[in-house]
């Protein structure tokens, strides 16, 4: 494949990951933090940015580890544990770097980083990358696109929930119940993109 068509393919994967195959609304990954940290737009943006950054880098690291450590020794089944360790180590590392060089960024992003280790969207993206056999460029654009799609969904949800504060909601439906229903309506909207692009 020449460079041009490869870039085009990577671009298609990027947009497919954001719209048609949104990691949150179509694949249901990262729901826990999506439900609990979507009360305010500001925090949602912070968490979203942290997810985009961590996902893009860890998917590249996971790709390298899979290709150059797991495959040569035929121990692919070890990937779950290795990926988790890479994600945890990367989050720890990036937290130290940010704390050292940018206190402002650390103040805004710092509290979200530990949450990310347990965000299943990060591990899920890496596992999808293995199943779909992406190459490195495709993997990075998939990671970035998935992160961006996740961020878009959580920011939109936070915007809607800020408005909902004044609404009268039945008792049993308050909190997670209504959030799930809104997520369902958002997922319906995203179905509209189906068939426009395919990143497979």
């Amino acid at each position: 494949m020449n460079i041009g068509s490869q870039m085009l393919h990577a671009l298609i994967i990027l947009f497919a990951a954001i719209f048609t195959d949104n990691i949150l609304l179509a694949r249901f990954l990262g729901m826990c933090s999506f439900l609990s940290v979507s009360r305010q737009v500001k925090t949602a943006v912070g968490l979203g940015l942290a997810v985009v950054m961590v996902m893009t880098f860890t998917i590249a690291l996971d790709w390298l580890a899979y290709r150059y450590i797991l495959q040569p020794y035929a121990i692919e089944y070890f990937r779950f544990i290795l990926f988790i360790i890479i994600i945890a180590a990367f989050v720890q590392f990036i937290e130290m770097v940010i704390e050292r060089y940018s206190p402002i960024l650390h103040q805004n992003l710092g509290i979200f980083l530990p949450l990310i280790t347990v965000n299943c969207a990060i591990l899920g993206a890496s596992l999808f990358m293995v199943i779909r056999q992406y190459n490195l460029i495709e993997a990075i654009s998939f990671g970035f696109g998935s992160g961006a799609g996740w961020m878009m969904a959580i920011v939109a949800m936070a915007g809607i929930r800020e408005r909902l504060n004044n609404a009268k909601i039945p008792r049993g439906l308050q909190g997670p119940g209504i959030t799930l229903i809104i997520a369902g309506i958002m997922a319906l909207a995203f179905i509209g993109f189906t068939g426009v692009l395919s990143g497979r």
């Binding site: 049993g172 229903i181 369902g184 179905i191």
Partner: peptide
């Protein structure tokens, strides 16, 4: 499809939380 999952779970959570707040 994905939206059905959200709606079904929302309704189940609603029922469970109404029975026992």
């Amino acid at each position: 499809m994905p939206p059905g999952a959200f709606f079904t779970l929302a309704i189940i959570v609603w029922i469970a939380r109404t029975i026992q707040p």
